[in-house]
Design a protein around this nucleic acid. Sequence first.
RNA 1: GGGAGCAUAGCUCAGCUGGUUUAGAGCAUCUGCCUUACAAGCAGAGGGUCCGCGGUUCGAACCCGUGUGCUCCCACCA
Length: 793
Amino acid sequence: MELSKNYIPTDVENKWYAHWLAAGYFNSTPDHRESYTVVMPPPNVTGILHMGHCLNNSIQDILVRRARMMGKNACWIPGTDHASIATEAKVVAMLRERGITKSSLTREAFLAYAWEWKEKYGGIILQQLKKLGCSLDWKRTSFTMDPDYYQSVIAVFIDLHQKGHIYRGKRMINWDVRAKTALSDEEVIYKEVQSKLFYLNYLIELPENAEPTFITIATVRPETILGDAAICVHPDDERYKHLHGKFAFVPLINRKIPIIADDYVAIDFGTGALKVTPAHDMNDYVLGQKYQLDIIDTMNDDGTMSEASQLFIGIDRLEVRKQIIPKLEAAGHLLKIEEYTNQVGFSERTDAMVEPRLSLQWWVSMKKLSEPALLAVMEDEIHFHPAKFKNLYRHWMENIKDWCISRQLWWGHRIPAYYAPDGRFAVAASIEEALKQLSTPENPLTIIDIKQDEDCLDTWFSSWLWPFEVFKGLSQPDNLNLNYYYPTKTLVTAPEIIFFWVARMIMAGYEYQGTKPFSDVYFTGIVRDKQGKKMSKSLGNSPDLLGLIDKYGADAVRFGIMISSPAGNDLLFDESSLEQGRNFNNKLWNALKLMKMWEARTAESNSNLDEQAFAINWFENRLATVQLEVNFLMEQFRLSEALKIIYSLVWDDFCSWYLEWIKPGFEQPIDKGLYKKTVSFFEQLMQLLHPFMPFITEEIYHLMNEQKDDLCVKQNGPITKIDDTITASGELLKKVISALRDARNKNQLKPKESIDLHIQTSQENDYKAIEAILMKQVNAKGVHYTNEAIANS
RNA sequence: GGGAGCAUAGCUCAGCUGGUUUAGAGCAUCUGCCUUACAAGCAGAGGGUCCGCGGUUCGAACCCGUGUGCUCCCACCA
């Protein structure tokens, strides 16, 4: 059989992935073995494969394949997340292109479009993962809105409500006026913007006939004055002491508001006087609660001014900000305008300027739930890798805030709350049940009278159940799969979602299964480009991953991304590392070609048996040493380092040194025993490398020898005991051999003459290896070495 | 404003408990080679104030203090 000059990955990869699927290697069923379960962080159904997924899933595949080769029952679960906000935004955009507005549709009609969209585009990313070689158990593919999953989410809501952890409350939230939805704090991005600070005069209420006097406040949001409920000054501020308890008038609408004193106000900022707008500012709301101020909500859910604002009704608040200034100026209220740089929140999803807004939302009280989850990590029941994230986690968990779980969206799990016409509500699994709770003999109701809450649940309120719900942990409690595969072993995810997701999964695990959801969490870095910028679609610096796989091969992509990916550190992606991966593929390919040449001419015996025994012994030890090191590194999730030493073992020790050493003279036969031994080394190398580069290793493994089993599921044999007399690394031997070659090239080396070689080594045992080289290369009679590490022949 | 982390070759990083390290690797660079597995290769070379300063120690890239620079997380001042 003729082997191509260079390794060509595409066909090989397609062939083997199809073969593995057909053989069912990735499917798992509970048995007597130890399980190794990994649940894939479900990508958004809308997603396509990018570098982050590639890194993340390569790591998981490496862990899973390795576990499988160690004889464990490996189970890796794929799936997707319905991603309510992101998906709904895409569907709305798709409808807009067709000239349909969401508001013109009924909820049912909109959801029909959304499902249609999901069936068509959702899950593209799962197909792309196959290209990467991911050994996922496809039969177990889950979706956070599968019927059973959906019911479990609803059941959790009802359960937490019954336990008193879920409550309904008017709270200040971040409001996205474009998506008309509440955002969690984490979904708000603060940006520095150039704003204007307006100084406005408020008339103070004085006895009749007195000279009018004013108090000046500073604001960047002049439109909110229409919702002012008070003016606040610092109690110790001498300038305003005479005004405590007095009243002032809101400009333009002349509403009378009190002047209050509270030490929240900074004396040295602006004028030292603060206008208090409880409905539209987080801190003002707190002040409002404290002093029982009126709450005047001047904004509609789309960002336009409401009836309560009295003026500018129906106009967008940003437009009002412009329009109100001339009016204030005309009325003599504008003192001055200053340029001002401040931080303003924007919606992560729609980039709309976020408005703090008072709203009736559903909340989860987190204090109780977080306690076992904090302990689990602090007491190393769950291990974080790298451990530095423990501190971050503790800090957040100790200061945890309640979780706003309602979203004003249709795509998602609809909140199971039902309202009676009089405003009473019931939380129930069905409208019939709600009716039972709400209907009383004094107040009989029918189904038509009650209405379900229009809102959906936060996406994370479903994905926090992921590790057990993929095994139907709640919908079919105590089932065989759950009991066998749960708790899962390792979660691989990005540190960005440690609070969104990781912390909450831990809470849900303890709350609903009584155990941790996983034993180890491996945090990957963030993928950045060469300049260190985070890769993202919006920046346009994310390379086309499928294109890269086509160009270099999946193995090379996996190699490239893993070799530059130290645990917990960000990864600076550079295409040159993919080239390195491709070159490595080719090196392996050429080693195979060499073996194939030898295979054609093996012979029974050879005179240099001692030397061969030494070479074999030496490489056996190198191999075993590296195998042990790899075990050690993998246990600590130092995958990048493990790959590096395997790379070096293959290239430097096996190819550059061992193969050169045993290489027979030109067109000479190779000893049969030596050849067999070498094949076995090569196979072991393929096995060691397989989790990292599954395709080429499988291909070589089969081309080298007729194999009954596939490498993909071949179990690692026990590591042979290391003979501690020979440990010299290929690097050292290379130095020796190159010194010899150098001497020979310069014709310095002649029989019976001596040469000085200055080789330094820390291992006395290395001298034995050096001695052997010298015996072979120069037929030295013996080697003399001293403590000063000078070898003489 | 509160917290965490980082700083070692041009780049990305190892260097674990202070001592065999005259500080290493990969990539990049330069030089010479198309030598019968491999130019996607081989052989070699150059490249460092281990961020600055001070301290502990027989001995510091490593421990302590301090300064500087960078990154991230949290909060966010009208």
